Amino acid sequence: LRLENDDLKQSNCDMKKQIDELERKTDDLEGRSKRNNLIFYGLPRQEKETNVECEAMLKDLITDKLELADDIVFDRAHRLNSKPNSPVIARCVFFKDKVKILKAKRKLQGSQIFIGEDFSERVREIRRRLTPHLKVKRNEGCRVSIVFDHLLVDGKRYSVDNGNNLTEIK
């Protein structure tokens, strides 16, 4: 009976490892599929707005406010939901265009418009839990930023555990 119990424990441990690996792979695939996506917050909704009008609004923002060339191409652009002024998600055809937009987004400071990246649910949750640590480290005078799913503090990488404690990534 003891041997059978040990076998069950080992089998359970093996399955847990498989599930963890599958979750990691799924998260990686989702992240890759969202790699070229940007989310635009604070854009006013037009009455009976179509996806074509949504894309045109983004083009105007990019050329007028971000002062980028009008050669940026979107695969698609649409509102995330039907709520008033809901965010717009857009998929850039070229990753380099996404990077250009992200670098130029500082020109929007002081406006009601914010541009962010599209991440998986798991990564969004981790970033939400890292934000208080970012604020504390920034107040301490550290150079700090959130990069994907970890915190970068003065060149060192940190992750957050289930208790919201920072641990250095070696």
Score class of each variant (00 low, 15 high):
Asp6Trp: 08
Asp7Tyr: 15
Asp149Gly: 01
Glu23Ser: 08
Cys142Glu: 02
Thr131His: 13
Glu49Tyr: 02
Lys59Thr: 09
Val93Cys: 06
Lys107Tyr: 08
Val52Ile: 12
Ile72Asn: 03
Ser111Asn: 03
Leu1Cys: 15
Arg35Val: 13
Cys142Asp: 03
Glu55Phe: 07
Asn5Asp: 15
Thr167Arg: 15
Thr131Asn: 14
Arg122Gly: 13
Lys25Phe: 05
Arg79Trp: 06
Leu22Pro: 07
Ile72Cys: 06
Pro44Asp: 07
Val144Gln: 00
Ala56Asp: 10
Pro44Val: 00
Val123Asn: 03
Lys9Pro: 08
Leu38Lys: 02
Val136Arg: 10
Glu117Tyr: 04
Thr50His: 00
Glu30Ser: 09
Glu4Trp: 13
Arg35Asp: 14
Asp60Trp: 11
Arg127Ala: 06
Ile39Arg: 07
Lys65Asn: 05
Asn12Thr: 13
Val73Ile: 14
Phe114Asn: 11
Arg79Cys: 05
Ile146Arg: 03
Arg129Asp: 07
Ser111Tyr: 05
Gln109Lys: 13
Phe148His: 12
Gln10Gly: 07
Arg128Asp: 09
Lys96Ala: 10
Arg32Pro: 03
Leu166Phe: 03
Pro44Asn: 07
Glu67His: 10
Thr50Trp: 05
Leu1Pro: 15
Val123Ser: 01
Asp118Met: 12
Asp60Phe: 09
Met15Pro: 09
Tyr41Trp: 11
Glu140Ala: 11
Leu8Cys: 10
Glu21Ser: 15
Asp28Val: 06
Arg24Gly: 04
